[in-house]
Design a protein around this nucleic acid. Structure first.
Length: 233
DNA sequence: GCGACAG
DNA sequence: ATCTTGTCGC
């Protein structure tokens, strides 16, 4: 496990973070189809926090896209870099995620984030931000619709409905990954189209509502946090 | 002006 | 995100 420091130039407050989003969002690429579904590697990333002790733990779990077996895992622990502010989640999660990704020995391939990409008030959510910083293709799968509206998709796995911004733009999709179960909210991050993001999500979420990549990363970052707590005590 | 609001 | 046991169901 690698111990990280928050980047020295990381925004210190809300105004600085907003300025960074304004500067970086022009670099998001949305006209590339992205990697084919079921080939190569897919990496799930997730983060867990202990704000009491000011500890953050991130995990990156690399899967073989064909069989969804784990190829490699990495974690990183550090101090919380930013408070949780809706719309600025990336500043809280990304330093630890970058550290976990950088300690992988192999290529991550497609990165699946727990949150949004372009489905964001300023079209620059966590997944897009991570994509721009790393150059990797990314997508976001969130468990809640955030500030967007949608009509209920059909009841079957694979059914979807547009996730709409206030101006009517389709910024993502409410996608049913299991029959009769609450949909997940998918959006493109970087170098992946929305259609491709949904196809990857369906491939990764065959057995459960949440993609296998995210579930694996979630379990691993919680374990890393527990270990860091024990070490701190 | 106040509240809601990914994790 | 996090605080948290048992329990209903495939």
């Amino acid at each position: 496990m690698r111990i990280i420091e928050t980047p020295a130039d990381w925004p210190a407050d809300e105004a600085a973070a907003l300025a960074v989003q304004d500067r970086l969002r022009a670099r998001v690429i949305l006209d590339e189809p992205g990697p084919p579904v079921g080939e190569g590697r897919v990496t799930g990333v997730d983060v867990a926090y202990d704000d009491e002790r000011d500890i953050v733990a991130a995990a990156a779990v690399v899967l073989d896209a064909a069989g969804l077996d784990v190829v490699e895992e990495a974690t990183a622990v550090g101090r919380v870099a930013f408070p949780y502010i809706p719309g600025l989640l990336a500043f809280r999660e990304i330093p630890a995620v970058l550290a976990a990704l950088s300690s992988l020995s192999g290529e991550p391939g497609l990165v699946v984030c727990d949150g949004y990409g372009v489905a964001h008030p300023r079209r620059f959510g966590l997944a897009s931000h991570l994509g721009v910083l790393t150059g990797l293709p990314t997508l976001g799968v969130a468990k809640n619709p955030f500030v967007f509206s949608y009509d209920a998709p059909g009841p079957r796995r694979g059914d979807s409905a547009p996730l709409l911004a206030e101006d009517g733009e389709e910024v993502g999709r409410a996608l049913r990954t299991r029959d009769g179960v609450k949909p997940v909210f998918v959006s493109a991050g970087h170098r992946v189209t929305l259609d491709a993001a949904c196809a990857h999500t369906l491939h990764l979420a065959r057995r459960f509502r949440i993609p296998e990549s995210t579930r694996r990363a979630d379990t691993l970052c919680r374990a890393a946090l527990a270990a860091a707590r024990a070490a701190a005590a």
